[in-house]
Structures are given as C-alpha cells and as structure tokens.
Design a binder for these strands. Structure first.
Length: 302
DNA sequence: CACTTGACCTGTCCGC
DNA sequence: TGCGGACAGGTCAAGT
C-alpha cells in the first residue's frame, strides 16, 4: 500500500526526526530483512550518524555520515515507526484505534537504537519489504534504480515525456502502464484508479486507443492527486501509518478507491463498480469511464 | 519481444 | 466456533 504519497509522508516525518541521531546498535532476527547483504550490518551501521532521509520512487534512503545508505522498500505492509526515549506507545490517540500499539510487536523485523534512547522500528507483517545497507555510491546500481522511471512530481517532468513513456507500452492497458515503475515511478493501485477516474479513462483502455489530449489530462490528474494525497498524509487502507504511527486521511477524499456500491461524484445515480484489471482490484464509474470500443465495453462488463 | 500471470507472505474476512 | 479459501497489492521471475 505505501505508494509515493505514503512513502513521501514517512520521509517527511523521518527527515524531521532522524538527522543527527547516532546508531548505537541494530537488531534483526530476520535474514530476509537484509537480503544478499555484502556488508556486515552491525559493523557498518553501528556508530553511524544520520544525515538526512531521501526518497526515490517508493524507496526510502537514510543517508549516513559514513557514506553508506540504508535503502528501504516497504512493499505492501511495511512500516517505519519512530519512538522517542520517553514514549512507549505509538499511534493516533483514540483507545479504539486498532493501529495503536506497543513496539516492538510481532511484525517488527529490524530495530535501530539511537544514542539518545530513541528507536526506529521496521515492521512488515507480510515480509515482502527489504532493507539494504550499501555504499551511497552504489545505490544507483541497484536493479530497481537502474530501470525506474521519472518522479511524477519532479519539476523537470513534463507531459511530453509522460506521453512518450506511456506510449512505449502501446498494446497494454493504461492501468498496467501506470503501475509499471519503469514507465513512471511511484504510482500504485490506489492512485492509478483515482487518476484514471479523474481523467475519465477506463483502466482497461489500450494505450494506443488513447488520444494525446487524454494523456495530457491524465498527466495533470496524476500530479494533482499525488499532491493532494501527500497533503493528506497518504491513504490508510489497512495498516499504513506515518513515522509517528498516525494514519493518513486521503481515502476520505477518494473518488473511486474502495467505494464500490457507492454513488459516483459526477453521476449520483451511478454506482462505483469493482473490476479486475492488470491483476488488481480496480474501481471505476461505468458512466465516466467507458472503453472507446462499445463492443469491448460490453464484453468487459459481463 | 511485449505483455500477463504467479510467487512471495500473513492477516482478515466470508461462507459453510 | 472452526475451517478453508479468497483477497489484499509491489515487484520480480516465469509463462504465454
């Protein structure tokens, strides 16, 4: 679930909390947390001071003063939760909030202890996520970074490049192209659905059936939705929380995601439906988002 | 080659 | 109440 806005929200939080902290020890009892590490994590992490926290695509980069970087991918259920020396509980505050808890919990994979007594917990229920400690100069050599596409909110990223990159997948569905991290970085299932509704494009539409004008609209939709989502602290669908253990509120503003059976905001008499596109649960308004070919439109709905 | 599907995991929810 | 199965989705490997 962490997509660009969630990872960016965590980054903003960690970048306020972590710089200057010195790692005094590191605990991990889960080998997969540091897969194929060439570097002894204890040796290269202990004593390092944190400089800043950056993000590329959905990967967080904790930069150390030793010219090493800790790269972290949260995949679907990863959390990074910071707890200060005096605080034991984390979370949003209400006692009934199921996301509030104590750290470490049974999903904690890695714990960093800092010299001032504060701690950073890497939790991952489903164990899909990873951390890698490596020389900062080698970060760009990670397979993931070698092929990942541009940042959608970069000041240097324009509609022309967006269209060009999307069109490299002419016969795939537009949703599949949006989810392809080598085309554009950071979009996942939630924001793909939201952006396509905003741009009135059916997720199953083939790229080469989509006009240049529609792709321009989609480009703007992606940017405005990602910006709004960052502003709202991301989307908490299941277990996403920010660095302080707080939920994001974007889903209160979502137009289609997880709204199946509820009315479309443009067509109050039409209900949002859920389909399967690109192997993912996909939410659309059947009136706003029609396939260009009506024959396909009917076939898909059966 | 271009694209789609399955595997990786675990917790939750639904129907029987 | 317990149990099996479907589902959730980011990315990579394997399959078509």
């Amino acid at each position: 679930m962490p997509e660009l806005p969630e990872v960016e929200t965590i980054r903003i939080g960690l970048d306020k909390l972590l710089p200057g902290k010195k790692v005094i020890s590191e605990i991990h009892d889960w080998d997969k947390g540091f897969p194929n590490s060439k570097y002894d994590v204890q040796q290269f992490l202990t004593g390092a001071k944190i400089l800043c926290v950056r993000r590329r695509a959905k990967v967080l980069l904790i930069e150390l003063d030793t010219k090493y970087s800790l790269a972290i991918h949260l995949k679907m259920t990863g959390q990074l939760i910071f707890i200060s020396k005096t605080k034991e509980r984390w979370g949003g505050g209400h006692p009934s909030d199921s996301l509030v808890g104590h750290m470490p919990d049974k999903s904690t994979r890695v714990t960093l202890l800092f010299s001032d007594g504060s701690k950073l917990f890497f939790n991952d229920q489903r164990k899909f996520g990873w951390m890698r400690l490596l020389p900062s100069a080698e970060v760009s050599n990670l397979d993931f970074f070698k092929k990942v596409g541009p940042e959608p909110l970069s000041a240097n990223f324009f509609a022309k490049e967006f269209r060009g990159r999307i069109r490299r997948r002419p016969s795939s569905t537009i949703k599949s192209a949006l989810l392809d991290q080598s085309v554009i970085a950071g979009i996942g299932n939630i924001y793909a659905d939201e952006s396509l509704w905003e741009a009135r494009i059916h997720p199953s539409e083939r790229v080469n059936n989509i006009s240049e004008a529609k792709l321009n609209t989609l480009f703007k939709s992606i940017q405005s939705i990602l910006r709004l989502a960052i502003d709202k602290g991301g989307s908490t669908d299941r277990n996403y929380v920010n660095a302080r253990g707080q939920r994001g509120s974007y889903l209160e503003f979502a137009k289609v995601f997880r709204r199946e059976g509820q009315p479309c905001f443009r067509h109050p008499k039409e209900n949002i439906i859920k389909l399967r596109v690109a192997g993912r649960g996909t939410h659309i308004c059947p009136k706003c988002q029609k396939l260009r070919s009506t024959a396909e439109n009917k076939a898909i709905r059966v």
